[in-house]
């Protein structure tokens, strides 16, 4: 198993290299460059041309790529052209809030999706199944931004007014330690709910169908025949086998955890990666785009590796030698 993980990690490097080349090419295929949106007549064209040269935007493409690559190998992902600070700092500032939001939302998805999926499968065809399935589909059908606005209306700006409406922390407050954690947690509830609720349906339906498939298997009948309590049958024998598709889903979800919340981030002014990505995309901030896309590529690869490891953990038949 360790050998397998090491081998996969070693494969990661050439794959990232290939991904970086592909990302570079695709980003440059888009028309315009970081300065094409700067149409202010006050902007001296001679000066803009000079800035283009300074960032080597007029260099031949291979040279630009090599320039980026040699920097990246040394750990220097470059300086954002529009923000004028190192890309690592720009992303670092937003990584924490993004991870917090992603993990909280995914926890909601897991904590609701798995039990409700089991429940719907076990009580298949009864009113419980109908209610659970309908609710989760309703959650899927409501766009995150709309749910976000409703939550704001009910819990923050109107209605109960018990939760903050926007941001990661209370503006101006200089909390540290536990107070900071509690403050951020209060701010996290609404965006995590808005983002999480829409994801429940997908996971729930996967768990439900996987469980249904497993529940009909002979070995479950055997387990019941042995006189095992229903709880053990369900959780030890059925769920463990039903989890395979769920693990795949979670593994592939890893990059979306970080960058998949642009709209939710925008409604709640959450200072995350998604909005940075969007801004950088609109402005062709190449160094930022390269770094973020590479981060997502890395996470995708890592996610599939984690999924493979996860298979081995839940399914004793899976062995990597």
């Amino acid at each position: 198993m360790t050998g397998f993980i090491l081998r996969r990690l070693a494969q990661l490097l050439p794959m990232l290299l290939g991904a970086s080349l592909l990302i570079f090419a695709v980003i440059r295929l888009a028309p315009g460059d970081p300065y094409s949106g700067l149409i202010d007549p006050r902007a001296d064209p001679a000066k803009v041309a000079e800035l283009r040269r300074r960032h080597c935007l007029d260099c031949p493409m291979p040279q630009q790529y090599l320039r980026w690559l040699t920097g990246a190998v040394r750990g220097d992902l470059g300086t954002s052209i529009r923000f004028r600070i190192p890309v690592t700092e720009l992303i670092g500032d937003r990584l924490g809030p993004s991870i917090a939001l992603g993990v909280a939302a995914e926890s909601i998805v897991l904590l609701a999706g798995i039990p409700f999926g089991i429940l719907a499968a076990v009580r298949r065809g009864t009113w419980v199944d109908t209610v659970v399935t309908t609710c989760s589909l309703a959650g899927l059908a409501i766009p995150a931004f709309f749910l976000g606005l409703l939550l704001l209306r009910w819990l923050s700006l109107g209605g109960l007014q018990i939760l903050p409406s926007a941001g990661f922390t209370t503006p101006g407050a200089q909390f540290t330690g536990a107070a900071l954690f509690l403050d951020a947690a209060r701010h996290l509830i609404l965006p995590a709910t808005a983002l999480g609720v829409t994801g429940i349906a997908g996971l729930m339906s996967h768990v439900r169908s996987a469980m249904l498939e497993v529940l009909g298997q002979d070995y479950l009948r055997t387990a019941r025949a042995k006189g095992l309590p229903e709880r053990v049958v369900l959780y030890r024998h059925a769920l463990r086998n039903a989890l395979m598709p769920v693990i795949t889903l979670l593994g592939l979800n890893l990059p979306a955890l970080l960058g998949g919340a642009i709209i939710t981030e925008s409604v709640f002014q959450w200072p995350g990666i998604g909005r940075l990505m969007y801004t950088a995309l609109l402005e062709r901030d190449y160094p930022v785009l390269m770094a973020l896309n590479l981060l997502f590529a890395g996470l995708t690869l890592l996610g599939s590796l984690l999924a493979d490891v996860g298979y081995a953990v839940v399914d004793p038949r899976v062995r990597y030698d």
Partner: peptide, 21 residues
């Protein structure tokens, strides 16, 4: 004494104004 220049969402800001935020 102090100014907090918040970055707000345009669709939410009107509600924040009415709520006094």
């Amino acid at each position: 004494e102090r100014i907090i220049y918040r970055i707000a969402n345009q669709d939410v800001a009107t509600g924040q104004l009415k709520a006094g935020e």
